[in-house]
Structures are given as C-alpha cells and as structure tokens.
Simulated assay, not measured.
Amino acid sequence: MLPTSGPSPDSRRPVIGPLDLAGRVDEALAVQAVAFGLTDDEIDVRRHIVRRHMSGPGARALGATTGDGRLVGFVYGMPNDRTQWWSTVVHPYLRQEGHDEWLSDSFVITELHVHPAYQGRGIGRALITDLTDGAAEARSLLSAIDTASPARALYYRLGYRDLARRVLFPSAPSPYVVMGAWLPLRRGG
C-alpha cells in the first residue's frame, strides 16, 4: 500500500498545469489512494487503465503541483466514446432515465482527486474547470459515488446535475450516480 501520510500542506496554492499523467502515474495513484482509498491491487489495475486512457484520442490531464514539484491533485478526461467500457455500463441507466443523448458530444471526467491535506482550497474546482474549458464538446459527464459528499456538492455548484442514480459498476461496492453539465462549467458559488 502507498503511504497514507502525505505532504504537509503548503500555504501557497499549488500550480495547475498540464500533466504527463502516463509518466507520473504512480504519483497520481498515490494521491488517489489517499483521497479515494485504494488497495494495492486496485492501484495495479488502475495503473494500466490510466496508461491506456492517456494513449486515446483527445485524452488530457492537468495536475496541481507544489513549489517543490510534488503532485497533490490531478484530473483527466477524454471525449466520450460509446464503445468504451464506462460508456457501455452507464448507457442502459441513462437510456432508462431518458438521457442517453448525453453520451454524444460529451467530454468525460475520468478521475479527479486532490490529496486530503490540500482539499478545500479550490484546487479541485480549478482542475475540472481548466480541463473542461479546453474541451471541444458541448457538455461534460462524470460518475461519482451516489452519496452526499463534498465532491458531489462541488459538481452541483459547477452546474452538473444527476442524470442516472444507483448505477452499478462491476466489482464496485457502492452505487454511483452519472452527472452531466453543459460547458462551460458554471463559475462562482
């Protein structure tokens, strides 16, 4: 397991910028492990998934780094492809709710994580808005655990709304919600 003690919080806001996620995948997964709670086996599986995603067309990543270069947050996403695994899993749920059109002309936020020592500083907001500002698509999709959380509250403030709830991903212990927002994302609030 990766260490759960992370960087001591720096009083300055980390710098948001392009991230070579494939090259820094272990650092990103260390942040995700602490922020989201991952086992070593889950980290190993996700390492391969991230590298595969980042080799796809239109995949982009941003990172939040401290003055000494430590990665304390990241986001990545890509234009939705209806043949990709995520899209095939959520499609029946979206269709049932009358929202399957959201799978077209959408940029999917695949992962967004900020180390807990750096949460509550607007880093997650900056990461997701900066990434989606560069999207050519008209809207954005993401999935989140279907429970009240600071992440869900952020997504609502950005303009995301629930499109399908109680979405079950194979091997995930909790149901998810698929959320969508028109781009550009809402500012303020």
Score class of each variant (00 low, 15 high):
Leu131Met: 09
Ser8Thr: 14
Pro150Gly: 11
Val108Thr: 12
Leu141Glu: 02
Met78Gln: 13
Arg187Ala: 14
Tyr176Ile: 00
Ile49Val: 15
Leu183Cys: 05
Arg152Thr: 12
Phe36Lys: 06
Pro3Leu: 11
Asp81Tyr: 06
Gln96Pro: 02
Arg121Thr: 07
Gly6His: 11
Glu137Gln: 15
Trp182Asp: 15
Ile109Val: 15
Val34Lys: 04
Leu71Gln: 07
Thr110Asp: 11
Glu42Ser: 12
Ser104Leu: 13
Asp130Leu: 07
Leu183Val: 06
Ala138Asn: 08
Ala135Pro: 10
Gly98Cys: 11
Arg125Val: 05
Tyr160Ser: 00
Arg157Phe: 02
Pro57Leu: 13
Met78Phe: 13
Arg187Leu: 11
Ser143Glu: 10
Pro7Asp: 12
Leu112Pro: 01
Gly23Pro: 10
Arg161Asp: 02
Ala144Ile: 10
Arg60Asp: 05
Arg186Asp: 06
Arg51His: 12
Glu111Asp: 15
Asp20Ala: 09
Leu62Tyr: 07
Gly98Tyr: 03
Pro79Lys: 09
Pro116Asn: 08
Glu137Trp: 03
Asp162Ser: 08
Thr83Arg: 14
Leu142Gln: 01
Asp105His: 07
Leu163Glu: 03
Gly159Pro: 02
Ala135Glu: 04
Val89Phe: 10
Gly77Asp: 02
Gly58Met: 07
Ala153Thr: 14
Glu111Gln: 12
Pro173Ala: 13
Tyr156Phe: 14
His99Asn: 14
Asp40Leu: 12
Gly63Thr: 08
Leu158Gly: 03
Ala35Asp: 04
Phe36Asn: 05
Gln32Phe: 05
His113Arg: 05
Ala144Phe: 00
Trp85Glu: 14
Phe36Met: 12
Arg125Leu: 06
Ala64Val: 03
Met179Ala: 07
Asp41Thr: 11
Gly188His: 11
Pro9Ser: 14
Arg13Pro: 11
Val114Asn: 01
Gln32Glu: 15
Leu131Asp: 01
Ala181Thr: 01
Asp44Pro: 03
Ala181Asp: 04
Leu158Val: 01
Gly189Ile: 08
Asn80Phe: 08
Asp10Leu: 05
Ser5Leu: 13
Thr147Gly: 10
His99Val: 06
Ile123Asn: 00
Gly6Cys: 10
Leu183Met: 10
His99Trp: 08
Asp100His: 11
Val25Arg: 00
Gly134Glu: 12
Arg157Leu: 01
Arg70His: 13
Gln119Ile: 08
Ala181Lys: 00
Ala138Val: 04
Arg13Glu: 13
Val15Asp: 15
Ala135Phe: 05
Gly120Leu: 05
Phe169His: 07
Leu185Cys: 07
Leu168Pro: 03
Thr147Trp: 03
Ser140Thr: 08
Arg187Asp: 04
Ala136Met: 07
Val114Lys: 02
Arg95Leu: 15
Ala172Cys: 12
Thr4Pro: 11
Glu101Asp: 15
Arg161Met: 03
Ser171Ala: 13
Gly134Arg: 09
Gly188Asn: 09
Val178Glu: 00
Glu97Leu: 04
Arg70Lys: 12
Thr66Met: 06
Arg60Tyr: 05
Arg47Asn: 01
Arg47Glu: 09
Val31Tyr: 04
Trp102Leu: 05
Gly98Ala: 10
Arg70Ala: 13
Phe169Pro: 02
Arg187Gly: 13
Ala61Gly: 08
Ala28Lys: 01
Tyr118Arg: 05
Ile16Asp: 02
Val90Pro: 00
Val75Lys: 04
Ala33Glu: 11
Ser140Ile: 00
Leu2Thr: 14
Pro150Phe: 10
Val90Arg: 00
Gly180Pro: 00
Thr147Ile: 15
